[in-house]
């Protein structure tokens, strides 16, 4: 009985893991297969292997002859890190206020965050474009950092507030009596205790910036200010589609995100507050 159950559960899990991984494997296959058309075969094993697509992507240059790929990687990294930092700072401080302070407009503010989440980003694309244009921030990473970090904030605030709410108030009260200021309570007690939630929201902010395409494509026009998703999309041109480079680029783009997940996974494990108060 229990043995059959185990087999069933594992069969189920393996099936869905395969379902998820299979398309990725096909992309990996394409990235190492010569030629630019996407073979219809379903075998994940390539018939011939080449790293040409990779070297083409990595070796690409702008019209001044400077390395383009690394420039774009740098753009994406700076953009994503800056988005994460700005977003985390704004989100954690406001989530703390929403969790611990009672002020007029608190419920309203939380509701607004939810409502804002319901509009797709494309809907606010035009107004954002106008605003960035007026601010002279089109075609600049600063503009995108502002846009990304603010669009990520609602999710981050809700997640962090939910987590902050689970930290017993008495721990902060004890710190307060011990001599802490409000900021010290936040910085030395709440933040260290919120590592799992901070990891989740940081990852979310990072990936928002790392993967976003539509706004970046709209706001960035110079090749040298592109981000990785914009670069990828440009391989899929109107006239010809360079599937090989696209696949190789896609694999390269996903490596840092996977690395990040790997590094952060141990922080994602909850249960850090265990032991502070009687459970």
């Amino acid at each position: 009985m229990s043995r059959w159950k185990t087999i069933l559960i594992h069969g189920f899990l393996i099936f869905f893991t395969a379902m998820t991984l299979y398309p990725v494997l096909l992309v990996v296959r394409k990235s190492v297969t010569p030629g630019d058309n996407f073979e219809r075969s379903l075998s994940p094993i390539p018939s011939r292997v080449t790293l040409d697509h990779y070297s083409e992507v990595i070796g690409s240059r702008d019209f001044n002859g400077r390395p383009l790929f690394w420039r774009i990687v740098l753009n994406s990294v700076v953009l994503s890190l800056a988005t994460t930092l700005v977003g985390m700072f704004l989100a954690s401080t406001s989530a703390y206020a929403f969790s611990r302070l009672r002020f007029p407009g608190r419920r309203m503010g939380l509701m607004m965050f939810l409502v804002v989440q319901m509009f797709p980003a494309t809907l606010i694309m035009i107004p954002l474009y106008v605003i960035l244009d007026k601010l002279g921030l089109l075609d600049s990473l600063v503009g995108l950092v502002l846009v990304y970090s603010t669009t990520a904030i609602p999710f981050c605030v809700w997640t962090l507030k939910g987590y902050f709410d689970t930290i017993p108030r008495e721990i902060e009260e004890a710190a307060w009596i011990d001599g802490a200021t409000r900021f010290q309570m936040f910085w030395r007690i709440v933040i260290p205790l919120s590592r799992p939630a901070l990891a989740v929201t940081a990852l979310f902010s990072f990936m928002t910036a790392w993967n976003e395409y539509i706004l970046a494509e709209t706001f960035l026009s110079r090749e040298t200010s592109y981000t990785l998703p914009v670069m990828l999309q440009h391989y899929v041109g109107t006239h010809s589609t360079q599937w090989g480079k696209f696949a190789a680029g896609a694999v390269l783009v996903s490596i840092p995100v996977m690395a990040l997940f790997y590094i952060l996974q141990k922080h994602l494990v909850s249960g850090l507050t265990a032991g502070g108060v009687k459970g």
Binding site: I171, E173, T273, V277
Partner: peptide, 10 residues
């Protein structure tokens, strides 16, 4: 102050 649930810094 000593709290009922101890309120130690975990």
């Amino acid at each position: 102050m000593v709290f009922q649930n101890y309120a130690l810094y975990p």
